[in-house]
Design a binder for these strands. Structure first.
Length: 296
DNA sequence: TTCCAGGAGAGAG
DNA sequence: CTCTCTCATGGA
């Protein structure tokens, strides 16, 4: 299947931006598991070539993948809204085309429970191990992977078996989350209908889910673009570049929301990735003061 | 050896 | 409410 004439989309930036842990690149082609089947994606300029290990209706498949990759949104407009100073302008210029995925809710909840106090390489490894042990094997085009285990499977597996996959102390958090879904304490279909704030606080009822993880789930799965996950990097950016002082999470949230607006989640994604290559903080401060559109 | 990784919970004050 | 300490694990 082909999606032609795509604009403002970069597959590499989108799939390698720390929001999904399930994609593997072989040459210029990405393989991953989405909703139980292997998806193979390759970008050639303004065309996406997408294949599935499953035989599926082309129109439905195209629609599904467009939603997953967030292609239905007007990214140029969103980036224009958040592009309020010379600093984020550079971030946007460098990573233009990076989009926020709309990932499966349960896998996203589980993945970001596992992400706390952890690094991306290890998170990927743990998720791979969990899937190998408790998921189902899927294969396509010589690529082998495993579906992400269902809440029911993990609930039945027990904490010890989850722990054996290398989750560390997060095993009980994951097991509890699985049980809450199996027991109907957390209803995923209902969660999807809630607005950002309600969804965030519903998620925070889970053990091991605080503000940051809840915001990741809201942003990378539920499409709430006002969500702002504050990790060490985002905190550092706002303290050093924008606020110029040590600040609490609440203070950063309030400032960022009024400064970048309703699409602050997109702003965050670009700043996060730009900052990781950014070493000159003095220069960053200077650029941030060059407001293009607003005065704070 | 110590520190850190897309943090959160428990306990003390 | 805020501050601190701790929680597995592996790579730097």
């Amino acid at each position: 299947m082909h999606i032609n004439n795509i604009t403002d989309f970069n597959l590499k930036y989108t799939l390698e931006s720390g929001q999904s842990f399930r994609w593997n690149r072989i040459d210029n082609t990405y393989y991953g598991v989405v909703e139980g089947r292997i998806i193979k994606i390759c970008q050639e300029n303004d065309t996406l070539i997408i294949d599935s290990s499953r035989d599926e209706d082309e129109i439905t498949f195209t629609s599904h993948m467009s939603h997953y990759l967030d292609l239905n949104k007007d990214l140029a407009f969103i980036l224009d809204v958040v592009n309020v100073d010379a600093y984020i302008d550079r971030a946007i210029d460098k990573f233009r085309g990076m989009r926020l995925l709309n990932q499966e809710i349960w896998e996203t909840i589980a993945s970001f429970i596992l992400s706390q106090n952890n690094n991306i390489v290890r998170i990927r490894k743990i998720i791979r191990t969990l899937s190998e042990r408790f998921g189902q094997k899927v294969e396509y085009d010589g690529y082998v992977d495993y579906t992400f285990p269902t809440p029911n499977t993990l609930a039945n597996a027990g904490i010890d078996k989850i722990f054996e996959c290398g989750t560390g102390y997060r095993a009980s958090y994951l097991w509890n989350a699985a049980n809450n879904i199996v027991n109907g304490i957390l209803v995923l279909d209902t969660l999807k209908l809630l607005d950002y704030i309600d969804a965030k606080y519903e998620l925070m009822k889970l053990q091991g889910v605080g503000e940051k993880v809840a915001d990741c789930i809201c942003l990378f799965s539920l499409g709430h673009l006002a969500a702002l996950p504050i990790d060490v990097w985002i905190k550092r950016i706002f303290e050093r570049v924008y606020l110029r002082k040590i600040a609490k999470t609440r203070e950063i949230q309030d400032f960022a929301k009024q400064y970048f607006g309703e699409y602050v989640g997109y702003a965050q994604q670009y700043l996060f990735h730009y900052a990781q290559n950014q070493t000159n903080w003095d220069d960053a401060e200077h650029l941030a003061l060059s407001n293009k559109k607003r005065k704070i």
